[in-house]
C-alpha cells in the first residue's frame, strides 16, 4: 500500500512544566484518511493532537521538542506562522463550543478574519456550502440568525465542524468530538466523518474503541506518553503486535 503522507512527527517530546507528557513520538498520518488516536485517559493522545496545529502554544508552561512535518515543512520552525498553520488545519473540540453569536456569524467568523471572501454574497454562499457540507443546513436554514448556543448538542458540534471547514483546511483535528453527545447524534457525526474524509485528512482522538474501529483507516495506540503501536485499524483490532495494545483492547487496562 503506497500512501501519501500528510503529517509526519519525528521524536516529539512534550513537557508540561517539569512533567513529560509525550516521549519520542514518531508517527505518520496519511492523506485523506481517518487516523484514530486511542488510549487510556492521560496517555497523551490529546496532547499530540494539539501539537499538530500548535494549540499547545497557548499554554504557558508547555514546551515541545522534535519535529512535526506537514507537507514537507516543519511547523515548529521559526518561519511558520501559527495563524497560517491553523488556517490550514481545522480543529473540532471535545465539548461543542460555538461562539455566542448567530449560526451564520459562527460559520462566517473564519472567512471574515482571514479575508477569504470579497463580497457579502460570496460569504453567504460559503456559509451555506459549509453548513451543507456539515449536514446541518436543512435543520437550520430558517433560523440562521438564531444564536449558535440555542442548538442541540449534536447540532452544535456539526456547527463547529461547519465553522472549521468554512476556511477549507486540508486537515481536520477532532478531539473526542462525540464524547458529549448522545448515541444518535454520535452516529450522525460518524457518518459525516465518512463523508468528509474524501476531501480532508482527519485525525480523531477518541476514547471509544468501537468508534475508532468504525470511522478510521489507521489507528495509533498511546499509553503513558508513549506511542505503543500504529497500524491499519483492522489489523490493530484483530491482531495487535504489542501486549499492551492487546490488554487495552480487551479491557485489561483502561
Amino acid at each position: 500500500m503506497t500512501e501519501k503522507i500528510k503529517i509526519k512527527s519525528k521524536n516529539v517530546n512534550v513537557y508540561y512544566g517539569q512533567k513529560k507528557a509525550l516521549d519520542k513520538i514518531n508517527l505518520e498520518i496519511p492523506t485523506n484518511k481517518v487516523t484514530a488516536l486511542i488510549g487510556p485517559s492521560g496517555c497523551g493522545k490529546s496532547t499530540f493532537l494539539r501539537c499538530i496545529n500548535r494549540m499547545n502554544d497557548t499554554i504557558d508552561i508547555c514546551r515541545i521538542e522534535g519535529k512535526i512535518i506537514v507537507d514537507e515543512e516543519d511547523i515548529y520552525s521559526t518561519e511558520v506562522d501559527p495563524v497560517l498553520l491553523r488556517a490550514k488545519i481545522g480543529m473540532v473540540f471535545q465539548k461543542p463550543n460555538p461562539f455566542p453569536k448567530s449560526i451564520f456569524d459562527n460559520v462566517a467568523y473564519g472567512p471574515k478574519i482571514h479575508g477569504i471572501v470579497n463580497s457579502d454574497d460570496e460569504l453567504e454562499e460559503l456559509v451555506i456550502y459549509s453548513l451543507k457540507k456539515a449536514g446541518l443546513f436543512e435543520e437550520v436554514k430558517d433560523r440562521l440568525n438564531d444564536s449558535g448556543t440555542s442548538l442541540s448538542g449534536g447540532q452544535q458540534q456539526r456547527l463547529c465542524i461547519a465553522r472549521a471547514i468554512a476556511i477549507s483546511p486540508q486537515i481536520i483535528l477532532m478531539d473526542e468530538p462525540c464524547s458529549a453527545l448522545d448515541p444518535i447524534a454520535t452516529a450522525v457525526i460518524e457518518e459525516l466523518i465518512d463523508e468528509l474524509v474524501k476531501n480532508f485528512t482527519i485525525v480523531i482522538v477518541t476514547h471509544s474503541m468501537q468508534q475508532a474501529a468504525r470511522v478510521s483507516q489507521q489507528t495509533a495506540f498511546f499509553h503513558m506518553g508513549n506511542l505503543i503501536e500504529v497500524g491499519r485499524t483492522d489489523q490493530i483490532f484483530s491482531t495487535p503486535s504489542q501486549k499492551k495494545t492487546q490488554d487495552y483492547i480487551t479491557g485489561k487496562i483502561g
Binding site: 496545529n53 494549540m55 497557548t58 495563524v83 497560517l84 498553520l85 491553523r86 488556517a87 490550514k88 481545522g90 480543529m91 473540540f93 465539548k95 463550543n97 460555538p98 461562539f99 455566542p100 453569536k101 467568523y109 473564519g110 478574519i113 482571514h114 463547529c160 465553522r163 472549521a164 476556511i167
Partner: peptide, 27 residues
C-alpha cells in the same frame, strides 16, 4: 469567559487581538 471559546477562535487561525475583539469582549 470560558477557555473553550478562546481555543475555538485560535484553532480557526485567529490572532490574539482578533480573538479579544471579536470573541472575548463581545462575550
Amino acid at each position: 469567559v470560558p477557555k473553550s471559546l478562546r481555543d475555538a477562535s485560535y484553532a480557526m487561525g485567529a490572532t490574539k487581538s482578533e480573538t479579544v475583539k471579536k470573541i472575548i469582549l463581545p462575550a
